[in-house]
Design a protein around this nucleic acid. Sequence first.
DNA 1: TCATGCGGCTTGGGATCCCAAAGTCAAGCG
DNA 2: CGCTTGACTTTGGGATCCCAAGCCGCATGA
Lengths: 262, 262
Amino acid sequence: MNASMDSIDTDLAARIRAAIIQGKFHEGERLSEAQLCDLFGVSRTPVRLALRLLEREGVIRRGGGRGYQVHSPTVADILQAVQVRGHLESLAARLMAMSPGRHNQLPNLAAAIDEIERLIGLGVMDDATLRQLQQQNANFHKTILDGCGNDFVGFTCNQISHLPMLEVGSMVFDRQVLSSPQGVERSLFRLRFGNAQHKVIYEAIQKGDAVRAEGVMREHSNTMVEYIEVFEKRNEALTLSDLISYSGIDLAQVQTAAPLSG
Amino acid sequence: MNASMDSIDTDLAARIRAAIIQGKFHEGERLSEAQLCDLFGVSRTPVRLALRLLEREGVIRRGGGRGYQVHSPTVADILQAVQVRGHLESLAARLMAMSPGRHNQLPNLAAAIDEIERLIGLGVMDDATLRQLQQQNANFHKTILDGCGNDFVGFTCNQISHLPMLEVGSMVFDRQVLSSPQGVERSLFRLRFGNAQHKVIYEAIQKGDAVRAEGVMREHSNTMVEYIEVFEKRNEALTLSDLISYSGIDLAQVQTAAPLSG
DNA sequence: TCATGCGGCTTGGGATCCCAAAGTCAAGCG
DNA sequence: CGCTTGACTTTGGGATCCCAAGCCGCATGA
């Protein structure tokens, strides 16, 4: 019930999307409806709905004459998108700092900050802890998006949050880095640094310092961009699969092949 | 061939959207597929595709159990969206000012500015002139979105540009204001003011002054917000139909009823 | 030999059919 | 008299069918 709470087409779109991101199709490959039908074992109606959805998301495009062709997002695309999302979040931070009713939401921010601090204090970077960290991080960011008074900011963020690492509040880690003690230590530092930014954002919003809230939030978003760029420099052939982790979307659990027959 | 260059479902979505925006359906009204089928004289397949599209756009929502209910955007919603779009454009302006290859695009910006200046100089505010103004304004803004180097900014803007007045480069006028000489004069001033901002943005981008480009672009976007807010104050029951004009989308030309039979 | 036209084949779009789930109404029971 | 439950009806989701519009290839004529 994890990936299939929605109807077939939404679920199907998620599976095709995951397949594309994981590189199961070649870049520019033609996708025909019939092909997807018997690949996933469904009829053409949901396939067409899914294709329309994916077209809007930008992971497939109308190619030349007939059919769609896959347009798999590259790491560079994701970096651009993260920048856009960060810019939107900085707008949200500014607006929230200017909002009179912001004090109702402040406890939620504080709770997320404290919980992240507690989790960091444990000093372990196992899967469960990372999941909880991601959850609290998402809480923090979503609270700002919801509390900024402009519903459209959150709406627009959601419009682009289907791509990997674009889910609001997602946290990116290199898989390898967590296997070495130094890597864990560096990751812990990165988390402490991020949470320090959270605290500054919190205080700026509390005091109504809109400029500061916006600026620090922008800087906070930039942190992820730079983190990914470091990877890019270190590893030429960086692929999305190397990075996707703790983003709220677990690609590994999204099955690609059709499981059942009849 | 204006509104129907795409296939039926896209066109259908546009018609349903127009009907919703024009208030042909009550807020919260249940939309059933069958009802829309015989209202527009098409089958259920395109209707479902259109409904999925409109759901993603946010003009209809999944209501309670079955079916969709219309969620017509209010003037307040549009204001929020304009703010978001403006924020994205200010990001584009900043990025373009920082982009090394920006000089290729500068002539396009200058051309749009000059052409707007020329059109304003005519001193007339007839339909044809306004259309040309809107076109040049769109050129200016699209050039920045395309030239900023981050394709995702333009992509995200496009994601929300189906709503009235959210098309990039759209210009909003009150219909009534153009019928009086004072109104025309005020509108001309507003256009001159806007184009002056264009010039400042142009120069900031040229000089690579990213901070200034971003700031003026934000202010430039705010102008429209304030213009609409003035209306809102003057006319309590301001509806979207009073404002929609010269937005690139001509609602009057989008037919609602089914034209043919058999 | 090359170009052009015709015909078949592939493929996407729209319509219709079937089924399952949810909502509603009414009747029976407490 | 009210609540519950079961049957009917409405409606949305999925599958299949039909049609039209592009591609491809072959053949024929210049």
